[in-house]
């Protein structure tokens, strides 16, 4: 498992690990999606949207990237299947997915925002690890 839910009284606190930064970002995007929609099976994407985010440091970049994704999910009713991004001082890429279907994607809980509280983004021996709270 690349992400796991940690204890938090009121919100959803996640630990996400990945070998490199782009995969840490895309896995974090899926962690957000599975919080919103519950576990769901892969489907061939039918829609594609560009995504971009900026930030003064890696933490801000991550919060802004996830906030952009949340905006995309809520306004386009998009359930992501594939997230392809590149990272330098900013993040840019595409999110491919299918439309929200109550029969398949109603297993989750709405996320109100991405919090900086208790957040850590660190390099580890095997890559990168993020701990982050989704406010619900």
């Amino acid at each position: 498992m690349v992400f796991e839910e940690l204890e938090h009284t009121a919100d959803v606190r996640m630990r996400i690990s990945a070998p490199d930064l782009p995969s840490l970002f895309s896995e974090s995007g899926f962690a957000l999606a599975k919080t919103l929609y519950g576990p769901y099976h892969f489907e061939t994407p039918a829609y594609s949207f560009p995504i971009e985010a900026e930030g003064k440091d890696p933490e801000e970049l991550m919060v802004n990237f996830l906030s952009e994704l949340l905006f995309l999910f809520e306004t386009e009713y998009l359930v992501p299947q594939k997230i392809t991004i590149s990272i330098d001082s900013s993040v840019s890429g595409t999110v491919e997915g299918v439309l929200f279907d109550r029969a398949k994607h109603a297993g989750g809980i709405g996320v109100k925002g991405i919090s900086y509280s208790g957040m850590s983004l660190a390099k580890t021996d095997t890559g990168y690890e993020l701990i982050i709270i989704f406010d619900i």
Binding site: E59, E74, G113
Partner: peptide, 30 residues
């Protein structure tokens, strides 16, 4: 709903810069 959530997200970003601008020391970024 999402309107209020987005307002919070947007203004947190603005206020983060403002915190530095006005020299306010914070124990928590949030």
């Amino acid at each position: 709903r999402g309107l209020g959530h987005q307002v919070c997200t947007d203004h947190l970003q603005i206020l983060e810069s403002a915190t530095k601008k006005y020299g306010i020391e914070l124990p928590d970024r949030q």
